[in-house]
Simulated assay, not measured.
Amino acid sequence: MSEHTPIGLGHEARTITALTHSGNFHADETLGYVVLHYALAPMGDLRARILDGASDDCLKFQRSRDPAHIHSADIAFDVGGIYDPSNGRYDHHMKNKPLREDGTPYSAAGLLWKDYGKAAVRNLVRTQVDDETINAIWLSIDKSLIVPIDMDDNGIAKMGKLSLADIVSACSPPWDTAELHGPEEAKRRETLGFANAATAVASHLVNTVDRVRASLKATDRVLAAYKQAEDKRILLMDTGMPTEKVIFEHDLPVVYVVSPTGSGQWNVKAVPPERGAFGQRVSLPEAWAGLDTQALATASGVPDAVFAHPARFICGAASKDGALMMAKRALEIDAVLQK
């Protein structure tokens, strides 16, 4: 929690100028700009500010290494050699760089997320949520997205191929652009590349905020369903939603998840031995593998059985009662085999 009011989040009735460096760009400062956009002026034109300096709202954006421009900006990030958030300075390239409590050095994106992230999240969440939920979304994204960018930008651990950092880098023009097209065209393409990168990062952040919000909602639903379950090995969900994350984070002994599909069918999905792994804690019966409709109904004893995957991790029935019966029968068959 900031001990100061970040610039632009008070009651300033003026346009705030934010600045980062020109030249090569990375996920760090690209995300930093996107965070400021959603925190301070979410209804503005994110691309227009970059491409032509348009600012019809309370945020103006510049990319420059000119000391005079850096000095005059209200917020300067990833450039300037100063970390002084009370005065809008968010660089991290100094010898005594700002560190997280665990010693991980911040990137500029991390420093801006610390001060402006919750405001950005609040403007991005489209449904009514309380401050506790805003904080939970902010913290989840800090851990899953911001910390990896901090580590990548500070040379601790690369985010890897097809990561957000890699997508941003792919927006940069090739090294020989000036050689082939001249310095002015190279500068234009660099600016366009930053705008494209910011657009991609903005889309990712918008989707991530909404997915984290939904994930927190799913956690409450899954835990409530587990509490009501007669057999704690079978989790019955009345709506399809992600359950694996909650099962492993809360160490639930769930073996099968029963839930509806969009087509009205009900599925039984086996929980893997570890989160994200292949295999199952308890595989579906071998005698069901690859069967469907009447053949599966005969083998399982469930009249409305629809299918059983050959890999024995999922099966389904036409009704909730049928799917529950399949889950119970599968556990009974496994118990016999274990004896």
Rank of each mutant, 00 (worst) to 15 (best):
D130I: 00
D130S: 00
D131C: 02
D131I: 05
E132Q: 08
T133V: 13
I134N: 06
I134P: 06
I134K: 04
N135P: 11
N135V: 15
A136V: 11
A136Q: 13
A136E: 13
I137V: 14
I137R: 07
W138Y: 15
W138G: 07
L139T: 13
S140E: 15
K143Y: 10
S144A: 07
S144F: 06
I146S: 09
I146P: 04
V147M: 10
V147Y: 14
V147G: 14
V147C: 05
P148Q: 11
D150W: 04
D150N: 12
D153R: 02
D153S: 11
D153E: 12
D153F: 12
I156W: 11
I156M: 10
I156E: 10
I156L: 13
K158T: 11
K158V: 08
K158A: 09
K161P: 13
S163M: 10
D166G: 03
D166A: 07
S169H: 11
A170H: 11
A170I: 07
C171R: 08
C171V: 06
C171P: 02
P173L: 02
P173F: 03
P173Y: 07
T177P: 08
A178L: 02
E179F: 04
L180F: 09
H181Y: 14
G182I: 08
G182P: 12
P183E: 02
E184L: 06
A186L: 09
K187P: 06
R188S: 15
R189C: 01
R189H: 10
E190C: 00
T191A: 14
T191D: 14
T191K: 15
T191R: 15
L192Y: 13
G193R: 00
F194M: 01
F194V: 00
A195R: 03
N196W: 13
A197E: 03
T199A: 13
A200R: 12
V201D: 05
L205H: 09
V206G: 06
N207C: 07
N207G: 08
N207W: 07
N207R: 01
N207V: 08
T208Q: 11
V209E: 04
D210V: 06
D210A: 01
R211K: 15
R211I: 05
A214M: 10
S215V: 03
S215D: 11
K217Y: 12
K217D: 09
A218I: 05
T219W: 05
T219I: 09
T219L: 00
D220N: 10
R221Y: 14
R221P: 00
R221H: 14
L223E: 10
L223W: 12
L223M: 12
A225W: 15
K227M: 05
D231N: 07
D231T: 08
R233K: 15
R233W: 06
L235R: 06
L235T: 12
L236Y: 14
M237Y: 14
T239H: 00
E244R: 02
E244V: 05
K245T: 00
V246R: 09
F248Y: 14
F248R: 03
E249V: 05
E249P: 03
H250C: 01
D251N: 06
D251E: 03
D251M: 00
L252R: 09
L252S: 10
V254I: 01
V254Y: 12
V254E: 01
V255T: 08
Y256F: 04
Y256S: 00
V258H: 05
S259C: 00
S259G: 06
P260H: 14
P260V: 12
P260M: 04
